[in-house]
Design a protein around this nucleic acid. Structure first.
Lengths: 235, 235
DNA sequence: AAGTGGTCTAGACCACTGT
DNA sequence: CAGTGGTCTAGACCACTTT
């Protein structure tokens, strides 16, 4: 019953999607149950189940055990935006990426970082790096790393390896959280990015979790006007 | 063999994740095959398969049919950020959302919009709405809509129905594109959002495709400092 | 030829919902 | 109570890769 270009569960999905797109099943309406799909389409229940589960996962349907499966209301659904690695992005554009290391050492835990990282020790590793695209400063990266998670962080040559690449090897990434906002670039940021006084900048705060706890906190300041590109770039 | 708080396939996932987190299986390494997991954990192959499939879906593993399953290299992978519906977001916080309609009518196609929308006619529908959260202006929405896609747009009461909600009913959403950047709020935006002169604001440009062509273009100006929240909000 | 993932079946038991 | 989704099994056939 297999041997088809498109798998059966995809046909079941298409069958359901068609009825939703045609307006036959409107948001909030109950769709056919798995057993009904089994009878209608001559598939096994596991196949119908997989189709429905994937449609739930993609946000098209929602299910209530014991009750039924309903067409989701996409009106309030979110749309994903990628946060991408800036170095990789610049290279993909065929441009030259250069990382200028401003400082790289140990610091006492700053108060505003304590809200994001709760290190066991009293010190954090810190680095301040300016990323350039074809010689133009594009982003300031202010990163704090828990020594317990990445003890070798100070030995890195950050002009060669991005902190993100190293941290991925030191400990796998479990969770990432981003906060994006707009600010008027403070003097320190403006000077590194050669921004005019009062120029706007995006501020991206990124916290990563590794080994079950927050392991690094980074502030990114991409130059506002130079960043009129698709998506948001960090890492 | 069921009757457990956590499903078996979740246990299989945990089993695999544990070995990855411990460093036993590094990025690029081959992990145990489905049959091996079946023997190790005494589960059926369908259960092992579901576990592995979900780990692929979440980006932890990648599979090559006929060859094996490998630990994915997350180093250059992107991370999603949600672009959410501001009205829904405000309501979820239990706050009051109010949409103040500044203008709502027809306009000749502005030059800077022509880059995003290529309407067949000479006019576009246009609306300018300020979104308030508990009385505080939070976002300015400047939207252009192709009359061919949403002929009823001018009949809407935008203080009751968000444009997004209406457009979802008029024609299904096929594609969305966002450009995010930081700007110093121009005077017009600053006055609507009651921002101080020179204050920074996020600018989100959003183009939606419906019926195979660009159907609406919207500029969103969320107030920068008031928006120190997780994620980016638009729609 | 042996191993791998991709798919599919025809049953099953469970907890829960709704009438 | 019948119906629903959630899970699980023990097989199976297939196309493909690797040795």
């Amino acid at each position: 019953m297999s041997t088809a270009a498109t798998p059966l569960y995809e046909k079941v999905k298409a069958h359901v999607l068609k009825r939703i797109r045609s307006g036959e099943w409107r948001p909030g309406a109950r769709v056919h149950s798995e057993h009904e799909l089994v009878r209608e389409l001559n598939v096994s229940r596991m196949t119908a189940n997989r189709a429905m589960r994937e449609l739930v996962q993609s946000g098209v349907l929602s299910r209530i055990a014991g009750s039924g499966t309903y067409v989701a209301d996409l009106r309030s659904a979110g749309h994903p935006l990628q946060i991408r690695n800036i170095a990789a992005e610049i290279k993909e554009r065929g441009h030259v990426h250069r990382a200028q290391v401003v400082s790289h050492g140990r610091v006492a835990v700053p108060a505003e970082v304590r809200a994001h990282l709760k290190p066991r020790g009293r010190e954090l590793f810190h680095s301040l790096v300016v990323h350039h695209e074809n010689g133009v400063p594009l982003q300031l990266e202010d990163r704090y790393v828990d020594p317990a998670v990445a003890p070798g962080y100070l030995d890195l040559d950050l002009s060669e390896v991005t902190a993100h690449e190293y941290l991925m090897e030191a400990a796998p990434l479990e969770r990432v959280e981003h906060v994006v906002r707009a600010i008027v670039a403070p003097a320190r940021v403006a000077s590194h990015l050669r921004l005019a006084p009062g120029e706007a900048a995006l501020l991206i705060e990124r916290t990563t979790w590794r080994r079950g706890r927050p392991a690094s906190f980074a502030r990114r300041d991409p130059a506002g006007a130079r960043f009129a590109r698709r998506g948001v770039f960090a890492q």
